[in-house]
């Protein structure tokens, strides 16, 4: 048979030309907070819908001195987070961590860490559908005009219809926000519990949607307001009990089914936050004795 061509990859997988293209898009995204910048998204070695936008953004900003943390559903150990982390460890040789405080870049799917982020950190969100108006108006040509005119009546009508039907707004995740008073923006499918963390955040927040070919950004210390009404102010979810492992209150919890007799427990969705608290001596009602790190295998 004929000879196979030699296949080689660049630092961080992407070639330099692709990185430049993504970097130019990131700069425009930062300059126009909340506006979705089109970019020529590439095929990545993981499927569309599995974080290709976030991975391209991370690959374009990542340097040899960075320390990378990857979470999915708040956890470092979910399989897709593991796969993305090992991708960058292999292609860029960067150091990785599970500790929020140590990381310089945190790539996330569906959560914002509970630990307050600092000015030296960058949060990269994986975004499936970047257009907050998409489910109200499927056509890109239409939604683009609505953004150009800052015509967000459609969104307010939708939220108000919720109130009329259910007595309250029935959107629990991917809850739309207004960024810097101009663009209505999709915060990615984080639970609305996390929305307040986007406001006046000291860290730069970058959003990558690979399949939909969009990058957008929220610069540090930018006003981010969840849409609401005077008579129906925005409210986050509340849990009526603390984390069963670390006792944390005011955090987002995962519901774990323990048996088929209705047994349930609620634990931190942010696994690092839970680990750090337990290491510091906090314990919940179902904390295992003598295993404060919670790293043992089941």
């Amino acid at each position: 048979m004929s000879a196979m061509p030699t296949i080689t990859y660049n630092f961080g997988y992407l070639d330099e030309q692709t990185k430049r293209m993504i970097r130019r898009a990131i700069l425009k995204a930062i300059a126009i907070p909340g506006y979705q910048v089109p970019f020529a998204s590439r095929e990545m070695p993981m499927p569309y819908g599995w974080g290709t936008g976030g991975v391209q953004v991370t690959a374009a900003i990542l340097g040899p001195d960075d320390i990378l943390k990857v979470i999915d559903q708040g956890s470092d150990d979910t399989t897709n987070a593991v796969a993305i982390r090992s991708f960058f460890a292999a292609t860029a040789g960067v150091r990785t961590t599970t500790r929020t405080k140590e990381a310089t870049i945190i790539q996330t799917r569906h959560r914002v860490p509970e630990t307050k982020l600092g000015p030296e950190q960058i949060l990269v969100y994986q975004v499936p559908i970047p257009e907050p108006l998409r489910f109200l108006e499927p056509r890109e040509t239409e939604t683009r005009t609505l953004h150009a005119l800052a015509d967000y009546g459609l969104m307010h009508v939708k939220l108000y219809e919720d109130i009329a039907r259910h007595g309250h707004i029935a959107t629990t995740y991917a809850y739309p926000v207004m960024v810097a008073g101009r663009y209505v923006t999709d915060p990615s499918p984080i639970p609305k519990f996390d929305n307040p963390k986007l406001d006046d955040c000291p860290a730069l927040q970058l959003f990558g949607a690979g399949r939909e070919q969009r990058i957008y950004a929220i610069p540090p210390h930018t006003r981010v307001v969840s849409l609401d009404f005077e008579d129906h102010p925005f409210r986050v979810q509340r849990f009526d009990r603390p984390c069963a492992l670390c006792g944390a209150e005011d955090v987002y919890l995962d519901e774990v089914i323990l048996d088929d007799r209705g047994g349930r427990m609620f634990v931190c969705s942010d696994t690092d936050h839970c680990d750090q608290r337990r290491a510091a001596g906090h314990a919940g009602t179902m904390a295992p004795q003598g295993a404060p790190k919670g790293t043992s295998k089941p």
């Binding site: 150990d77 979910t78 399989t79 796969a83 295993a291 089941p298």
Partner: peptide, 11 residues
């Protein structure tokens, strides 16, 4: 219950 670990091994 302990938080599920072992994503790396599973992959």
């Amino acid at each position: 219950y302990v938080a599920v670990k072992g994503g790396e091994t599973a992959i």
